[in-house]
Design a protein around this nucleic acid. Structure first.
Lengths: 132, 132
DNA sequence: CTCCGATTGAGAGTCAGTCTCAATCTACCG
DNA sequence: CGGTAGATTGAGACTGACTCTCAATCGGAG
């Protein structure tokens, strides 16, 4: 439960951070591992997972629960928001919903639940993909 | 891609349906398989998965994407709703959010996305668990 | 420079879920 | 009522994502 672990900035961590910075859409841990390898960086798969998880914990990246149980990561602003993802091309739009936030809180209070968090994703087909 | 498959009502399917009817909370496919086994019903794991998926497709059961990428199933009314789940004991409350539905549609229209669906779950700690 | 704990990585292990394919069952036909 | 086509089943191999283990290595405080 404690934190403030020493968390050293190593070559590997830097590489992963950069890989995330360079990508605009969600990537799975495996994707990142691959591109890192191709870029010549030698990073172990386990390290990628560990680092990604740590970053997600710290709120530095966003996690999207893929349909097949795989997680996709993306560098994101730290403020709370949700995603509208194209089912076909994967394009992502960040959206915010104050209405949703307050609704969630109200519902939680209503049922006497504490420490409520919510996961919300929107999936659809974007205009471009629809034209094909 | 066609459907209207003949879908025969077999012993196994009936057993799975009953197992779902008897449970009040979400259960993973593996859970269901286990209890079926313990109840003396011989049903293959693959069959449980197949049947559950078919039922989910048909909208007869609700699917909850667990954190570890595992799916939990539950017999549910067919009308659209969301869930408030206790992180500690797993208790589930069905909730509806007209505000959310319309917000989702508005956002979708805004960004010109079609066929928009959304997944939304609320997680928290229920009053009982909090008292411990 | 040295030391110690944080970090790494290769590979084995875990776990949910899917696939394969021969055997089986069911509904329906003649 | 027997025969047949096609749906269904199940055991187990397989996949893919992720975690664990543990010895080797690294990085920074002193």
């Amino acid at each position: 439960m404690s934190e403030s672990s020493t968390l050293r900035p190593t070559r590997q961590r830097r590489a992963i951070t950069e890989a995330l910075a360079g990508a605009s859409d969600f990537q799975s841990a495996q994707d990142i591992h691959d591109s890192l390898r191709q870029a010549g960086e030698k990073v172990g798969l386990a390290t990628v997972y560990r680092t990604l998880q740590a970053m997600a914990d710290a709120g530095e990246v966003d996690v999207l629960q893929g349909s097949g149980g795989e997680s996709a990561y993306r560098r994101c602003s730290t403020h709370h928001h949700h995603h509208l993802v194209c089912r076909s091309c994967g394009r992502t739009v960040e959206v915010t919903g104050p209405a949703v936030e307050s609704w969630a809180e109200a519902v939680a209070r209503d049922h006497d639940f504490a420490e409520v968090s919510h996961s919300l994703e929107l999936f659809g087909i974007c205009a471009d993909c629809r034209q094909q």
